[in-house]
């Protein structure tokens, strides 16, 4: 299984991150300096890493504004988070959100179609998720509040705080 993370290049604004930052302010939570949002994908199937790199660069990221990382993983949690986040410092909290099993994942469905168009004939399974990097010193309890009140609906999604 492969994990792909897509980042906005530093010189461009991250509008979704800024939006979440302003939404957080109405939760009454201060002291968060910046939020970066990045989409996550898991690709599973009988495919080579070159294929996955092609999927990441041709399909999942924008050549002008974004860059991406591809790494192997055996399951959702086996990735060393530090290696995949640029400029990580101790005051960064990471929240990852995924749909629960069985919940319709439209992004994943459209990736499955698009992978075929890239000439990759092997069947792939795809899962799409979200990652938020929150810069600032934030307690676990507050992170839980941010996720449950704002970012994820635990009825259909599961989350992890790192």
């Amino acid at each position: 299984m492969f994990r792909i993370e897509v980042f906005m290049k530093k010189c461009f604004k991250n509008p979704k991150g800024s939006q979440v930052l302003s939404d957080i302010s109405w939760l009454g939570i201060k002291n968060i300096a910046k939020i970066e949002y990045c989409p996550l994908y898991l690709i599973d199937g009988d495919v080579k890493i070159e294929d996955v790199e092609k999927i990441a660069s041709e399909l999942l990221s924008d050549k002008v504004t974004e860059f991406c990382t591809v790494s192997r993983c055996s399951d959702l949690n086996s990735i060393n988070v530090n290696s995949s986040v640029p400029s990580l410092s101790s005051s960064v909290s990471i929240i990852e959100i995924w749909y629960k099993k069985g919940v319709t994942d439209t992004v994943a469905e459209s990736i499955v179609k698009a992978v075929k168009d890239l000439g990759i004939t092997k069947d792939v399974k795809v899962k799409a998720g979200h990652k938020y990097c929150l810069y600032g010193t934030i307690s676990r309890a507050i992170l839980d509040t941010i996720v449950t009140k704002l970012l994820a609906n635990t009825l259909v999604q599961e989350y992890e705080i790192k």
């Binding site: 919940v103 319709t104 994942d105 439209t106 009825l155 259909v156």
Partner: peptide, 10 residues
């Protein structure tokens, strides 16, 4: 929880 539905407009 099964009462929850997510749509796929396309």
């Amino acid at each position: 929880v099964n009462a929850v539905q997510i749509g796929n407009p396309i």
